[in-house]
Design a protein around this nucleic acid. Structure first.
Lengths: 222, 222
DNA sequence: GCTAAAAGTGAGTAACCACTCATTTATGGT
DNA sequence: ACCATAAATGAGTGGTTACTCACTTTTAGC
């Protein structure tokens, strides 16, 4: 099977989420748990079946291959992570010129994605891990980003640059700084050091402030 | 390849083992190549043996288990990545109060680690990937960081804060912003989008400037 | 040039792998 | 109550896995 067939399959399974058999749901649930913990490659279908309380054959009744099981887990995460990046009511205001402030846009963005990551850690661990070895996932992610996230982000950045609120870097660079800072914060917060007694509100404030004003002492703020 | 560079370094420093037999070296070199490409778990020892032009038994003569092979690849990388973070001649000047400038410290840091990453991509890919599933690697990395990197970094940050050059965040937060920005840049540059025609000098300059002054328009620079 | 240790070999092994299929069980419309 | 269809099963399949071991070859000191 080639990459395109897999991608089609990805979308299909992602769409019909409500029509799941109880056993099917249990299989997905268990697979997510074990994949996140041990990785896709070193998880066996027999282990999933055993822990899900299901016969091994049942897995292959619903998912043609082990790889298809992985993709039906990962594929919905991609869209659910990327699409709402700019789907809030708030962001639309930006493009009606009612919110001339990159800082407030950032705040909405971070708060929004913070909650999402918080509620989907195992899924995001799997996505992060398996993207490296499955070109189909990489491709799907890249497509979704290019289509759903980048254009709006780009538009917003250019708007704020025009209004003299943002530095005149290439907008790709600004997007990169913004995203690596946010993602870096979220990965540190939820994956690298989840047990360090974080004061989330303070750290979010500092992250926003860092993005806007950097690490040098403040001479330009009121 | 980069694998060879790594092996040369290993021999030069002469960590634990005096010298490697040619076959042993070829095994390591080949394992690095395949691990980086397909991941540890989905690489078989027979595949390594075949590609290295060696009998499978030879692998297990030198490395007790497949896991030991992984560790003898990964553990030198940890120290090689972390230790020279503050081992340059330049950094010592900082602590003799001859260089009162976080910006210059950043530049040295980034240039230094930029070259290292550039020359060790497969090794760092393996480290990044396998850290997630091998607590031994995580622990080793954490120890090295806490012992070799953090204390000096912390001292430097506090020194510059005292001199009024750096914002009064907790130094852990400043270190986190600095590192996620640098690592985020390096990952984007060498792993996520290595083929985008980067102007490295410019991007390094912007990265440093972003760290210091953020994304808002410049009011405070000379 | 002898010899003992070290390096290298590859067929063999038990466990495990993803996946199949003939068969049994559950479901829902009439 | 009947039956067509879908869901679920688990023993079985051929292939692969990490690792072993009896054996051969190479190396190095005298």
């Amino acid at each position: 099977m080639n990459a395109k067939d897999y991608l089609e399959q990805l979308v299909k399974v992602g769409e019909k989420e409500d029509e799941l058999t109880p056993k099917q749901a249990k299989i997905l649930e268990t697979a997510i748990e074990i994949f996140a913990e041990k990785g896709y490659a070193s998880t066996s279908t027999s282990e999933i079946a055993k822990k899900a309380g299901v016969a091994e054959g049942t897995i292959f009744r619903h998912f043609k291959t082990k790889k298809e099981l992985l993709f039906s887990i990962v594929s919905p995460v991609i869209t659910k992570f990327a699409v709402p990046f700019f789907a809030t009511h708030f962001v639309n205001q930006v493009f009606q010129e009612k919110t001339p402030d990159y800082e407030q846009l950032l705040r909405k963005l971070i708060m929004n994605r913070f909650e999402f990551v918080k509620n989907n850690i195992p899924l995001l661990k799997i996505l992060l891990q398996e993207m490296a070895f499955h070109p189909e996932i990489q491709q799907s992610f890249q497509e979704v980003f290019r289509r759903e996230v980048f254009p709006k982000f780009d538009e917003a950045v250019k708007y704020y640059q025009k209004n003299g609120k943002l530095i005149a870097y290439p907008s790709g660079t600004i997007i990169r700084f913004t995203m690596t800072t946010i993602i870096g914060f979220l990965i540190t917060r939820f994956i690298v050091m989840p047990d360090e007694g974080w004061k989330d509100d303070e750290e979010i404030d500092r992250t926003i402030h860092f993005l806007m004003y950097g690490l040098s002492i403040e001479k330009s703020k009121d």
